[in-house]
Measured scan of single mutants.
Amino acid sequence: SQVHIGNTTFTFDNPEKAQKYAEKYAKKKGLTVQKNGDVWTVE
């Protein structure tokens, strides 16, 4: 599972961890999370 934030990609061994990280980061920065398969993009 991966989380894309700008030009940075974070890889997680667990989809739940990836989703939590993406949502927490997005909330903190006032951004949105797009999910595509097991990839979350914060923008």
Rank of each mutant, 00 (worst) to 15 (best):
S1P: 14
S1D: 03
S1F: 15
S1M: 10
S1W: 15
S1R: 07
Q2I: 15
Q2Y: 15
Q2V: 14
Q2F: 14
Q2M: 14
Q2R: 11
Q2G: 05
V3N: 02
V3R: 00
V3I: 04
V3H: 01
V3Y: 00
V3G: 03
V3W: 01
V3D: 00
H4E: 05
H4D: 05
H4S: 08
H4Q: 13
H4G: 02
I5W: 03
I5N: 02
I5Q: 02
I5P: 00
G6Q: 07
G6C: 15
G6H: 10
N7G: 12
N7I: 06
N7R: 10
T8K: 15
T8P: 02
T8S: 12
T8D: 09
T8G: 05
T8Y: 15
T8M: 15
T8N: 11
T9A: 05
T9R: 09
T9C: 15
T9W: 15
T9K: 12
F10D: 00
F10C: 12
F10H: 09
F10V: 09
T11Q: 11
T11H: 14
T11Y: 15
T11N: 11
T11F: 15
T11V: 14
T11M: 14
F12A: 02
F12Y: 02
F12M: 03
F12E: 01
F12G: 03
F12W: 05
F12N: 02
F12D: 00
D13Q: 11
D13N: 09
D13F: 10
D13Y: 08
D13P: 12
D13L: 11
D13R: 06
D13T: 11
D13W: 10
D13A: 12
N14W: 06
N14E: 10
N14K: 08
N14H: 07
N14S: 15
N14P: 00
N14Q: 07
N14G: 06
P15N: 07
P15K: 04
P15V: 06
E16M: 11
E16T: 09
E16F: 10
E16I: 11
E16G: 08
E16H: 09
E16D: 10
E16P: 00
E16K: 13
K17W: 08
K17A: 15
K17D: 15
K17I: 11
K17L: 13
A18R: 00
A18F: 00
A18W: 03
A18G: 03
A18P: 04
A18I: 00
A18H: 00
Q19W: 08
Q19A: 12
Q19K: 13
K20V: 11
K20L: 13
K20S: 12
K20G: 07
K20T: 09
K20H: 12
Y21L: 08
Y21T: 04
Y21C: 08
Y21R: 05
Y21V: 06
Y21A: 06
A22N: 00
A22I: 09
A22L: 07
A22V: 08
A22D: 01
A22F: 06
A22E: 00
E23P: 04
E23F: 07
E23Q: 08
E23M: 06
E23A: 07
E23K: 07
E23L: 12
K24Q: 14
K24E: 15
K24T: 14
K24C: 15
K24Y: 14
K24N: 14
K24D: 15
Y25D: 04
Y25E: 08
Y25H: 06
Y25M: 11
Y25V: 10
Y25N: 04
Y25W: 10
A26C: 03
A26K: 02
A26W: 02
A26G: 04
A26Q: 02
A26E: 01
A26H: 01
A26V: 00
A26R: 00
A26L: 04
K27V: 04
K27A: 11
K27G: 07
K27I: 05
K27R: 08
K28E: 14
K28Q: 10
K28W: 11
K28C: 13
K28H: 08
K28T: 07
K28F: 08
K29P: 05
K29L: 13
K29C: 15
K29V: 07
K29W: 15
K29A: 09
K29I: 06
G30Q: 03
G30L: 00
G30Y: 02
L31F: 12
L31M: 10
L31E: 01
L31G: 07
L31Y: 12
L31H: 06
L31D: 01
L31S: 02
T32L: 07
T32A: 07
T32D: 04
T32Q: 08
V33F: 06
V33Q: 01
V33H: 01
V33I: 09
V33M: 08
V33N: 02
V33R: 03
Q34W: 10
Q34S: 14
Q34L: 12
Q34K: 14
Q34A: 09
Q34G: 04
K35A: 05
K35T: 04
K35F: 12
K35Q: 09
N36R: 12
N36M: 11
N36Y: 10
N36Q: 13
N36S: 10
N36V: 14
N36F: 12
N36C: 12
N36A: 09
N36T: 09
G37T: 02
G37P: 01
G37D: 06
G37C: 01
G37E: 06
G37V: 04
G37M: 01
G37Q: 05
D38F: 11
D38Q: 06
D38W: 08
D38I: 05
D38G: 08
D38H: 08
D38V: 07
V39Q: 09
V39P: 01
V39F: 09
V39G: 11
V39D: 11
W40K: 00
W40V: 01
W40E: 01
W40S: 02
W40H: 03
W40F: 10
W40M: 01
T41Q: 07
T41A: 04
T41W: 11
T41K: 06
V42W: 05
V42F: 08
V42A: 01
V42C: 04
V42Q: 00
V42P: 00
V42L: 06
E43I: 15
E43C: 13
E43G: 14
E43A: 13
E43Y: 14
E43N: 11
